[in-house]
Design a protein around this nucleic acid. Structure first.
Length: 438
RNA sequence: GGUGGGGUGCGAGAGUGGUUGAAUCGGGCAGUUUUGAAAACUGCUAUACCAGCAAUGGUAUCGUGAGUUCGAAUCUCACCCCCACCGCCA
């Protein structure tokens, strides 16, 4: 959510941001509703002030009844006093019927206003390239050396099925399309990856957590992904009114809802592990094979609550941690700055890391880190108190540590050997009892 | 799933219809005193929105939402959450 004051003062800037992000919100309508809402509110508050005053007066005379002090007014006989009060009460009743109407109007305006406000996206940061689609993303750098093979590198699925690491067919039998069993070395690699991520990040002060994967519906809305298509992408349990999280960001970010941090406790960084559930409703026909895009996968995620002035720095920090993890695995990758069309409603800037997949001869996304500035904090009312006692909204950021499935894909393709076996990346070897999966 | 108890400010905790944004204690901040500290004393100590250059004024907020009333922390209803015990259970 943006600050309405900011929208009032910078309508053109907001409109421009909406256009860049291809969000369809009528800012003029929003401002119109806002204006009406304020006018009505003012009228209603004036009325309430009158009522409060009158009620107070009645309270006073009632109390004076028992007081022994007298003055001219108090000398009024009880009967007369009661009559005066009755008159006031009648007047207030009259007022009430008017205020009821206003209350109804304001309720309607509020609803309209809130609905519109929730649709206004976070504005892209100045350095985010403007674009219509993925083609406008900017490659910032390529890191690592692509492995050279003296044979034609195979696709991960071919390798994995032959080594009995991934079983899609049986998963289809049990759960349907877009599911998979990780078996043998792949299952063990998952735990080694989790360990590597937690080990690396906790060393840097991240607080390790395993969050709930089901969240209440009002909570699910909080992070700001439901206004776009993502609502359709979430699994919902109607019997309990719970959503399965698509990423642990959704249950970590909301953890501190309505809380106030002390400034000295910022940044508050978490590393969370959770299973993620996605319906992938908008991706029919995309990556239908294997485990590139599945309904259920495990992920280690970073989340940070930080001081607003430090969030750009923090974003770079999260990116650097992602790179550090990739470099430990020695998987070649590139870093992309995502363009305005590719960043979601709550996000102000986003970097993706794409791993090189030799079997497919292309880069594919394995990591993503975004800053949501104060957009989520505002919705969730997450603030910090500075030294002079002032409270203000924090900034929230998130980033992938390892999305297990896709990282496995990258490992399998990059570490494949001529005989079809797979070498275990050095950084994972200490966790596993073997150096090769064959 | 069943029964009982409870949700009040930074914390503890009072308040069961009237000048209560809320007693009291504790914490925090500032000041007096002190060579320094402690102690003592004094004062301050919620948030949001609206009007205003400001001082200030207004409105709302005692789990959430609705209702009764001229007036609700206080009464009514619904919901949420927490605690205790019982049942079931990895």
């Amino acid at each position: 959510m943006l600050d309405i004051k900011f929208i009032r003062q910078n309508p053109n800037k907001v409109k421009e941001g909406c256009r860049a992000k291809q969000a369809k919100v009528d800012i003029d309508e929003l401002l119109e509703v806002d204006k009406k809402r304020l006018e009505t509110l003012q009228a209603l508050e004036d009325m309430r002030a009158q009522k409060n005053k009158a009620s107070k007066k009645i309270g006073e005379t009632k109390k004076e009844k028992s007081s022994k002090k007298t003055n001219l007014l108090l000398a009024l006989r009880p009967l007369e006093r009661a009559r005066r009060n009755k008159k006031i009460i009648l007047e207030m009743k009259e007022l009430d019927s008017n205020s009821d109407r206003l209350t109804q109007t304001i309720k309607e305006l509020d609803e309209k206003f809130n609905a519109l406000m929730l649709q206004v996206p976070n504005l892209p940061q100045d350095d985010v390239p403007v674009g219509k689609d993925a083609s406008s993303n900017v490659v910032l750098k390529e890191v690592g050396e692509k492995p050279k093979f003296d044979f034609k590198p195979k696709d991960y699925l071919e390798l994995a099925e032959r080594l009995n690491l991934i079983d899609i067919k049986r998963a289809a039998k049990v759960s349907g399309t877009r599911f998979g069993y990780l078996k043998g070395g792949a299952a063990l690699l998952e735990f080694a990856l989790i360990d590597l991520a937690f080990g690396t990040l906790t060393k840097d002060g991240f607080i390790p957590i395993v969050p709930p994967v089901m969240v209440k519906s009002e909570v699910a809305r909080g992070m700001g992904y439901f206004e776009q298509a993502d609502k359709e992408d979430a699994y919902y349990l109607p019997k309990d009114d719970l959503y399965l999280v698509g990423t642990s960001e959704q249950s970590i970010g909301v953890m501190h809802t309505n809380e106030v941090f002390e400034e000295k406790d910022l940044p508050k960084r978490y590393v969370g592990f959770s299973t993620c559930f996605r319906r992938e409703s908008g991706s029919y026909g995309k990556d239908t094979k294997g485990i590139m895009r599945v309904h259920q996968f495990d992920k280690v995620e970073m989340f940070s609550f930080c001081h607003p002035e430090k969030s750009k720095e923090e974003h770079q920090f999260l990116l650097s941690m992602e790179e550090k993890l990739m470099q430990q695995l020695k998987i070649p990758y590139r870093v992309l700055q995502m363009c305005t069309a590719e960043i979601a409603l709550p996000q102000a800037a986003k970097y993706d890391i794409e791993a090189w997949l030799p079997g497919q001869n292309q880069y594919r996304e394995t990591h993503s880190t975004s800053t949501c500035t104060d957009f989520q904090a505002r919705r969730l009312n997450i603030r910090y108190r500075n030294k002079s006692g002032k409270v203000n909204f924090v900034h929230t950021l998130n980033g992938t540590a390892f999305a297990i499935g896709r990282t496995l894909i990258a490992i399998i393709e990059n570490y494949q050997q001529k005989d079809g076996s797979i070498k275990v990346p050095e950084a994972l070897q200490k966790n596993l009892k073997f150096k090769t999966i064959s």
